[in-house]
């Protein structure tokens, strides 16, 4: 038995320490000289509930991104080439991910806190946003887009699909109320207005359409059926949607009426 550490073991330990130190040195240099760092603690920034885009200077933008089950607000952002964007991210419900693929911006959207990162978009093109943190049953359907365009004077948010519009002068008040409820009650998470399929059937053109059920029957969707679908979602299950069941919602009769009128209006 020897009381000494073997020479080669000593050498290996020294080499390992040197390699680790060199590695840390490179990371430190990248952070100090190239600004390659990770999100910090933000002080005095309260979580927000609505997405928005504002222009600070010519090429400098500030984007507020809200993640919620199961979409981003805004879902689409258009910006000019060279835009330098300060991005603030928060969540309205559970933890989501916010990864702008093709860039180094990869943030956790945590409810109750605000996260921050900056991106400079040097090249034109489409930069898809992916939610990369499991956020529930429709997590795979949670994505968005940032479009970087040449010769654009100012960035904008194309008609936010999910934005509550000002009351159109000719829109009946019940429809407006229903539209609001569609957002507030979270129907938006599972039912789209533009024909795309998220978790449940799209509301587009639903009124008067034939709905086929798992028990083999079908019904032409009328007011009574839509009302029943909202109040007793499990009564008739639309074929092809049996894997994720629609939850029951606490809604008053007036609210149901508003929702029905709104759903009818989505053509």
């Amino acid at each position: 038995m020897s009381d000494r550490i073997h020479g080669s073991e000593k050498k290996v330990i020294s080499i390992a320490i040197l390699v680790s130190a060199a590695h840390l040195f490179i990371l430190a240099a990248a952070a100090l000289f190239y600004g390659l760092t990770v999100p910090d603690c933000l002080e005095g920034v309260k979580p927000f509930t609505e997405g928005s885009l504002s222009q600070k200077t010519d090429r400098h933008y500030e984007l507020h991104m809200v993640a919620r089950m199961w979409n981003f607000d805004p879902a689409e952002v258009v910006l000019p080439v060279g835009a330098r964007v300060d991005i603030f991210v928060s969540s309205l419900d559970v933890t989501h991910g916010f990864h702008i693929t093709g860039t180094n911006l990869n943030l956790a959207a945590v409810p109750g806190a605000v996260n921050y990162g900056r991106v400079v978009f040097g090249k034109p093109g489409v930069y898809p946003i992916v939610c990369n943190e499991y956020c529930g049953i429709a997590h795979h359907g949670m994505y968005g887009t940032i479009r970087i365009v040449e010769n654009l004077t100012a960035g904008y948010l194309p008609a936010k699909k999910d934005k509550v519009p000002e009351v159109a002068s000719n829109e009946p008040p019940l429809v407006t109320q229903g539209r609001k409820l569609y957002h507030e009650k979270g129907c938006i998470a599972c039912h789209s207005l533009d024909g795309s399929q998220v978790v449940g059937p799209t509301f587009k053109g639903i009124y008067g359409r034939l709905s086929y059920f798992t028990d083999g029957t079908s019904i032409k969707a009328d007011e009574a059926y839509i009302q029943e679908s909202i109040l007793f979602p499990q009564k008739k299950i639309v074929k092809g949607f049996e894997s994720v069941l629609m939850p029951s919602f606490p809604v008053t009769p007036e609210e149901v009426q508003g929702l029905v009128e709104f759903i009818k209006s989505v053509k």
Binding site: V38, N106, A108, N115
Partner: peptide
């Protein structure tokens, strides 16, 4: 594991 998390100092 939390480099991307908010609320933790850099």
């Amino acid at each position: 594991h939390q480099f991307s998390d908010p609320g933790i100092g850099v």
